[in-house]
């Protein structure tokens, strides 16, 4: 009888270092493409980054290149996750999208138009691309939750009834209880504050919603509520959503597309299935892959014919059960003969 899994073989597997994959491997070159091939390229992208270089402290001895030749498309209407280690450039990237930072080299195109075409109109871009910064609960300041969510729409100069409608809609998406509306935001719990802050951006009804680590520091239940709310928002409004995170686990569960950042570059970008099919490459650059993907990789290396790129427990269970029943059938067949 052959053992189902060769356990001993699994435990002695050594991690083999493969050379850093060429980032241009995923992007496809187009006729009038800029110098660097655009990753995750599509027709009519919502946002296109063209050959972005971004430096901190340029011209000083402390110069750091935060983004290195980044060219990337963000597909409209999708939920895109940006993953990378601390210092991989992901927070810098999102600040470029709504013009809080401006790259020295390269362009940011929103619906095909350079957002810096008219620097005086950058305020308008900020209404179109809503950014929820890290730990957004620290930006709350109004006397009531309602007033705080209404701050953005009010700055847009909307009429009062429109503001009211938007505030209630955004609160519902972000999971802010209607009973909290007249409370002071300073009296809420951490998770509630976070949801109020997210609602404050959603109420501006941006075409693109960018969230920098929206679930940082929350417990698993809180993480789930936030991500579920963001996903609902994306599905129901059709708004393009970007989430920055370092948690592969969450990204695998909620995102359509995944962009992987490493060493100030876009390492790979594409839909979720494509990215997790290359889970072994992710591991070589030191990124955490979902635990279930890791298990499947180990099983493959141990000689089990598992499909590559599994990232949900359900899918892994399915293929394991299939293998199990096949093995059972084979064994029975073997005994009979």
């Amino acid at each position: 009888m052959t053992p189902f899994i060769n356990v001993r073989k699994i435990t002695i597997i050594k991690k083999t270092k493969t050379p850093r994959p060429n980032p241009s491997a995923v992007g496809t070159e187009n006729g009038a493409a800029p110098a660097v091939p655009i990753m995750n390229q599509t027709e009519n992208p919502k946002i296109r980054l063209e050959n972005i270089n971004y430096y901190y402290g340029k011209g000083t001895p402390f110069e750091v290149k935060a983004l290195d030749a980044v060219s990337l498309d963000i597909h409209g209407g999708k939920l895109t996750g940006i993953i990378g280690h601390t210092g991989s450039g992901k927070s810098t990237l999102v600040q470029l999208l709504n013009g809080l930072a401006r790259a020295g080299e390269g362009r940011v195109l929103l619906d095909g138009v350079d957002i810096w075409a008219d620097p005086k109109e950058i305020g308008r871009v900020r209404y179109r691309v809503g950014l929820v910064m890290q730990y957004p609960e620290y930006q709350l300041f109004e006397e009531t939750v309602y007033a705080d969510i209404a701050y953005g729409p009010r700055n847009m100069g909307l009429p009062e009834e429109e503001i009211q409608a938007r505030v209630h809609e955004a609160a519902a998406f972000a999971g802010v209880d209607a009973a909290l509306m007249e409370k002071s935001p300073f009296d809420l719990s951490g998770g509630q504050k976070r949801r109020v802050a997210i609602a404050g951006i959603m109420a501006m009804r941006p075409e693109v919603l960018v969230l920098d680590e929206p679930a940082a520091g929350l417990d698993p239940q809180g993480r789930h509520t936030i991500f579920q709310g963001i996903r609902d928002y994306n599905r129901k409004t059709g708004c393009t959503v970007l989430i920055v995170s370092h948690s592969m686990e969450d990204m695998a569960q909620y995102c359509d597309d995944v962009v992987v950042m490493a060493h100030s570059r876009v390492l790979m970008a594409g839909d979720r299935d494509h990215i997790f099919a290359r889970a072994d490459e992710l591991e070589t650059v030191g990124l955490d892959i979902p635990q279930i993907t890791k298990l499947c990789l180990l099983l493959r290396e141990g000689g089990m014919p598992m499909p590559a790129g599994l990232y949900t427990v359900e899918a892994a269970e399915d293929s394991l059960m299939k293998l199990f029943s096949e093995a059972k059938k084979n064994r029975r067949g073997g005994e009979r003969s």
Partner: peptide
């Protein structure tokens, strides 16, 4: 940055308006 992302404007308008625009920074 966070308040700018919500459309705050610290650089234009009358002095009183600009002073008022600082409230969302000072309180947090």
């Amino acid at each position: 940055s966070a308040q700018k992302a919500r459309g705050a404007d610290f650089t234009t308008g009358s002095l009183a308006k600009r002073a008022k625009a600082l409230i969302p920074i000072i309180i947090p």
